[in-house]
Computed example of a mutant assay.
Amino acid sequence: MRGFSGFPPGKTLTVALPNQFFTELLQSIDDLIELKLTLYCFWALHQQDGEYRYVIRREVLDDALFLSGIDADAGTARERAIDAFERATARGTLLHVTVEGVAGPEDLYFLNTTRGRNAIRAIEQGHFTYGGRDCPVALVVERPNIFSLYEQNIGPLTPMISGQLKQAEDEYPAEWIEEAIRLAVERNARSWRYISAILNRWQTEGKDGGQPTQPTEADHYRYIRGEYSDIIDY
């Protein structure tokens, strides 16, 4: 067994792991290579910048250091790594999509987060394009930034509002946030708390709740006189 000399003194780079990794995934993953790959993906994604972060399978299979920790034979290591990708995808840890790259098809893997699910859905609907690692997955059509939308339609950004917008961006599809802002403007309820109440309701009850998408007088009354009346801030 190869020994470990310990972590060096002083500050070291760290990689954050979500709490669910320890409370749900760790005890359910029963394959060592899948566990190694899962941890590797967290590390690889942490090295990236940008809104949409993903692992390219080809790059992982070309990482000699990672493969050496799987099997001494590179060919066997690659086969076991591919199997680990399939296991992690079947488990739901990773989300897989194949896109047409510069040199042919590329297998991309996103973490199964709200942002990852939104990216997969957008790619499948043709809203994203892929141009290789130097030209990463990006929107085909640039959508308004939610921070700009808020400033243009609701009011000035404060540090607290910016933090809440950032959290909402991680929790809800961008289309929901844009529509909630539009509804707040149409109903003359220009408040983040009003927008947040709409988003929370959609998440709890399902978006539109089976009702028409255009707001009605009854909808408006329910928001300003009903369960959200204490948080309406005109």
Rank of each mutant, 00 (worst) to 15 (best):
D170K: 12
E59A: 12
F110L: 04
Q167C: 07
V15L: 02
T89R: 11
G104I: 02
T93I: 14
E171P: 00
P212A: 13
L95I: 08
E86M: 07
N112A: 08
N19T: 15
P9V: 04
N188H: 10
Y221F: 10
S28M: 08
N153Y: 13
S196M: 02
K207F: 01
E106C: 08
S148M: 10
R133P: 05
P144M: 04
D83C: 11
D134F: 09
L61E: 10
D233R: 14
I56F: 14
D230C: 13
I198M: 03
V15P: 01
R222F: 14
I154N: 04
S191I: 00
A74H: 11
I82T: 10
G92L: 08
E86L: 08
F110K: 05
V137R: 05
Q125D: 07
K36Y: 03
I120R: 07
R187Q: 10
K207S: 03
Y52H: 13
G163Y: 02
T114E: 15
A189V: 06
R133G: 04
G163I: 01
K36W: 02
Q203D: 03
D233H: 11
G10E: 00
L13Y: 10
V140N: 11
G92Q: 06
R190C: 03
N19G: 13
I195G: 00
A84K: 04
R115V: 13
E171H: 00
E179Y: 13
A138C: 09
V141I: 12
G116V: 00
V99Q: 01
A119R: 04
R201T: 07
V102Q: 11
G10N: 07
F21T: 05
D30E: 10
T23H: 04
W202Y: 02
Y234W: 14
I232T: 07
Y234P: 15
I198S: 00
A119Q: 04
V15S: 05
F110V: 00
L25D: 10
M160A: 13
W176P: 02
Q47H: 14
L94G: 03
T204D: 06
G206L: 01
T114D: 12
Y150R: 05
I154L: 05
F22Y: 11
I177L: 07
A189K: 10
I161K: 00
P159H: 01
I181T: 02
G126R: 05
T129N: 09
P156Q: 09
R225H: 15
A74E: 15
G116I: 06
I154M: 05
G3I: 15
I232H: 07
Y172T: 04
L17Y: 10
I231Q: 06
I181Q: 00
R143H: 09
F42A: 08
L139D: 12
E227G: 08
R117T: 02
T158P: 05
E106D: 14
Y223I: 09
S5N: 13
T204P: 04
A72P: 10
W202L: 01
N19S: 14
R121N: 11
Y228L: 07
S68K: 14
Q20T: 15
N118H: 14
Y54A: 13
A90C: 09
N112T: 11
D219T: 10
I232C: 11
Q152N: 12
R225M: 12
N188E: 15
I231A: 06
R225Q: 12
I33R: 00
R121P: 01
Q48G: 12
L139M: 09
T23K: 06
Q214E: 15
D230M: 14
F21N: 00
R193K: 09
H46V: 11
